[in-house]
């Protein structure tokens, strides 16, 4: 059996397009997770049950849910139950984002936890408002912990995004599936997609370690 590299080469455009869709889904979902995770983390940190309980349940629910199940449920289930018809791409981004916002909330919580009480005290003693204290003192320090973790989470999301084809998003895997069926050459196209995923993850992981190194500067004195 020969490996028909020419078939893969001829299909480079759909494969490239699928790769871009995969990156797009993961990036937009990361955006959802980053934006949604912060308020969830802040609510979770409250001492009042009306605030922390919903946040706690949100985190538990999405951490305990499979992406595969969630995406099918949102795309097909919501359509039937509530007549909400989301486009496949939107449903995919939303589900991947929601699920990971629960993880992001925990990442934010860890990050916020690394900022010592003395930092709040010092900022308030200087006359800063609570909002300025959060924006200029607490958040920047928390982000040093949050950003590397978020970058790691993004790499996971890239891989998890491989299932969004089930609702009809033309991502890398769905393109590979189509090409496989068209040419009856599963070995070539699944190998090609595996290599592309590998390169993607490798590339972004390198980026992550650069980011990690960048944000670990001046980090020893955190909380002092």
């Amino acid at each position: 059996m020969t490996f028909r590299l020419d078939l893969v080469w001829n299909a480079r455009l759909p494969l490239l397009h699928g790769t871009l869709v995969t990156i797009e889904v993961a990036l937009l979902a990361l955006g959802v997770a980053l934006i949604l995770g912060l308020p969830v983390a802040l609510l979770r940190a409250s001492r009042l049950p009306v605030f922390w309980l919903p946040a706690f349940l949100f985190i538990q629910f999405f951490r305990g849910t499979s992406l595969y199940v969630l995406i099918l449920w949102v795309f097909f289930g919501l359509a039937i139950a509530l007549d909400i018809n989301l486009p496949p791409f939107t449903a995919a981004v939303l589900c991947l984002g929601l699920l990971n916002s629960a993880y992001m909330a925990e990442v934010y919580r860890t990050g916020l936890g690394t900022v010592g009480f003395g930092q709040y005290e010092a900022a308030r003693a200087l006359g800063l408002s609570n909002l300025s204290t959060f924006r200029l003192i607490v958040l920047p320090q928390a982000l040093r912990v949050v950003i590397p973790s978020a970058a790691n989470l993004f790499v996971d999301m890239l891989k998890d995004a491989a299932i969004v084809g089930v609702v009809g998003v033309w991502d890398l895997m769905k393109q590979a599936d189509r090409l496989t069926k068209f040419h009856f050459r599963p070995f070539e196209f699944y190998t090609a997609s595996a290599v592309i995923y590998f390169l993607l993850v490798l590339g972004f992981s390198r980026l992550v370690s650069v980011i990690e190194r960048h944000y670990s500067r001046h980090v020893q004195a955190r909380g002092i």
């Binding site: 200087l126 006359g127 300025s132 004195a221 955190r222 002092i224």
Partner: peptide, 27 residues
Amino acid sequence: IGMVFQHFNLFPHLTALQNCTLGLEQA
């Protein structure tokens, strides 16, 4: 009213100069 703490409580992500300008600019 200025306050100085036992454990300094400097802002580690800001330089010495930025630590000192923060209150002036923000408050």
